[in-house]
Write a protein that binds this DNA or RNA. Structure first.
Lengths: 69, 69
DNA sequence: GTGTGACTTGGAGTCCGTG
DNA sequence: CCACGGACTCCAAGTCACA
């Protein structure tokens, strides 16, 4: 499992746990909706700033999104 | 302290703990020395793949480089 | 051993849409 | 609500010479 896949898995998991859609998360994190979809499909290696914004929107720390649980 | 600063601090700390120069780390992680220098000076928001390669070279997990200790 | 400016380019990230 | 596409913009990624 590479780093993109870890991010993708954590993104999906935390997002669904909170019951928010990709669109709602996109709004909260001020990131494009289609880009979040891409990240959940391991299409890109996000920057740490994007990871940080997504983490804040999900109420976790940035490193939580890169850690296997 | 933003995410770039956290990465920079952890990079410096782990690197010095292991007693390796930017040049040696650059060789280990197969990343240009001046780019590592840039990251330690918060010049860029690195991608998670770069963070992952640096982490492996330092013998830690990627999320360790984004976590305040 | 490290900082820095200048440079190129591939990919991160956005915006429009569709099924 | 999401996957996926094309067409864009702009910065991370990578290299070099020099201080």
């Amino acid at each position: 499992m590479n780093i993109r896949e870890i991010l993708a898995a954590n993104l999906k998991r935390y997002r669904r746990e909170r019951g928010v859609s990709q669109e709602e998360l996109a709004h909260l994190a001020e990131i494009d909706r289609t880009y979040i979809s891409s990240l959940e499909r391991c299409q890109y290696a996000a920057s740490i700033e994007v990871v940080d914004r997504l983490a804040k929107a999900l109420g976790v720390e940035a490193y939580d999104l890169l850690r296997l649980v």
